[in-house]
Design a binder for these strands. Structure first.
Length: 224
DNA sequence: GCGACAG
DNA sequence: ATCTTGTCGC
């Protein structure tokens, strides 16, 4: 099926796919390859709509970059809170199809089931690729949580409509927590575990940091 | 009804 | 997301 053209169609699609998501699956062993995905946008008058997506695959043990790819294109869908996937997926999927390696888990910049309709970008990406996915957000989108301890590793469940949809997780002592939620084929514990293994010196996972840098570089190059 | 609202 | 300098602190 093709991508929805309107927010109404997009919402309908999310509600149709949401029940296929599996977030009760423990990750089978420690992942060997972890991927990060991100998209950068141009905001000027004449570059309006220009986007650059990037996917970076790291060796989970050493955090060395095993493979990376980027692609510049046009955003076909407007940014609407709750519908981020429809803006970023086309570019990310194109990149995904050209990858030589198959990561064991993908870290998305955004949310999984911690979403108004329980179907964030990470769920959608996981469903379409069949690979375990989860999301790490920098700010809260839905839900609320108790205060998080000050030490790295401390966390508090993110509650939404009576359910635990994610976790506010402190990845660095004394630094604002990030918001982790399962996307597909992984559970919350696994997602938090992987997140901690990817955050040694920074608040955000090394995967998203690398993908963020690559997407920005690709966008810069495309505009110059 | 009003505000808030991943990136 | 993006526009942006210096500055406080480990």
């Amino acid at each position: 099926m093709t991508f929805p053209a309107t927010p109404e169609e997009a919402i309908a699609l999310q509600e149709r796919l949401r029940d296929r998501v599996r977030v009760d699956v423990p990750l089978p062993g420690n992942p060997a390859l972890v991927a990060g995905v991100d998209v950068a946008y141009a905001d000027s008058e004449d570059t309006e709509g220009l986007v650059a997506g990037a996917i970076v695959i790291l060796d989970a043990a050493t955090l060395d970059v095993v493979e990376s790819a980027s692609l510049v294109g046009r955003a076909e869908f407007p940014y609407v809170p709750g519908l981020l996937a429809f803006r970023e997926l086309p570019t990310l999927l194109s990149i995904w199809e050209g990858l030589r390696h198959r990561p064991d888990v993908v870290v998305c910049d955004g949310y999984g089931v911690a979403h108004p309709r329980r179907f964030g970008l990470a769920c959608h990406f996981g469903l379409l690729t069949g690979v375990p996915t989860f999301g790490v957000g920098k700010t809260a989108f839905v839900g609320s949580h108790a205060p998080v301890g000050d030490a790295r590793g401390a966390s508090a469940d993110l509650m939404f409509e009576g359910d635990v949809v994610g976790r506010a997780l402190r990845t660095r002592t004394g630094v604002k927590p990030v918001f982790v939620s399962a996307g597909h084929l992984i559970d919350l514990d696994g997602a938090c575990s992987v997140t901690l293994s990817l955050t040694s010196g920074y608040r955000l996972p090394e995967t998203t940091r690398q993908a963020d840098r690559l997407s920005r570089d690709a966008l810069r190059t495309a505009m110059s």
